[in-house]
């Protein structure tokens, strides 16, 4: 900790990898990767539970009757795009380009919000078709898995927004850089989980 770089002077320009320039930053990046590892295990458990229970739809609609691939595909495209925009945002950070960073992270937030909107719309539709959280074991497992993912998206959107507010006040410095980097890492993770949901829940649900 003693070897910390003085961070009060942000205008001096950032080093090539600002997120790893300080001990604190390095700790955060490593710690965050580990946290994502733990999150992966948790999602794996929810996936496992879903796979075990997806046949138990009882009186409600089955997976084949329920899923609408075109709309889900649209969600997927939106979320994948948002991952890309967050990469451009981090790229902007590496170029020490404050405006570029803020713009692309802003786009990421908007895409995240539209994804959430679509998901909520989808859930409302499902409930109308009789697919509810309490109706069957399949319903419980489905909403738990997707709800957990949705909550992650919501948290990501809020997080990135918060960081943008902070950056507006403080500018881009060695304190902010790791935060943005981690947020984008998190966003990729949420995206990857969605790819698995798209495959395991929707595509496999349509096939089986």
């Amino acid at each position: 900790m003693s070897a910390q770089v003085d961070r009060t002077d942000a205008s001096a320009g950032l080093p090539a990898h600002p997120e790893r320039a300080t001990m604190e930053g390095r700790n955060k990046v490593l710690g965050f990767w580990l946290l994502l590892g733990a999150e992966t295990v948790m999602f794996a458990c929810f996936f496992g539970t879903y796979l075990a229970l997806r046949g138990s739809s009882m009186d409600g609609p089955t997976t084949q009757e329920l899923y609408q691939i075109p709309m889900v595909a649209l969600s997927t495209v939106i979320l994948l795009t948002s991952s890309l925009t967050s990469v451009i945002g981090v790229h902007g950070m590496h170029q020490n380009n404050y405006k570029k960073m803020m713009f692309w992270f802003g786009v990421t937030v908007l895409l995240g919000l539209s994804f959430l909107g679509l998901e909520i719309y989808e859930f409302v539709e499902y409930v109308h078709e009789g697919h509810t959280f309490t109706g069957s074991a399949f319903g419980s497992a489905f909403y738990t898995l997707l709800g957990t993912h949705g909550a992650h998206v919501l948290f990501g959107v809020t997080w990135i927004t918060t960081l943008m507010i902070q950056a507006r006040k403080r500018g881009l410095n060695l304190d902010m850089a790791p935060k943005f980097y981690l947020a984008s890492l998190y966003w990729h993770f949420v995206d990857v989980v969605w790819v698995f949901i798209f495959t395991v829940v929707y595509l496999m649900g349509k096939v089986s």
């Binding site: 074991a137 399949f138 738990t144």
Partner: peptide, 22 residues
Amino acid sequence: LFLVMFDRLFGANFFDVAAGGN
């Protein structure tokens, strides 16, 4: 623990055999 909590507090059916749980 989430699954048990959902079953107990919010009426989910992960473990209720009658509703297809296991």
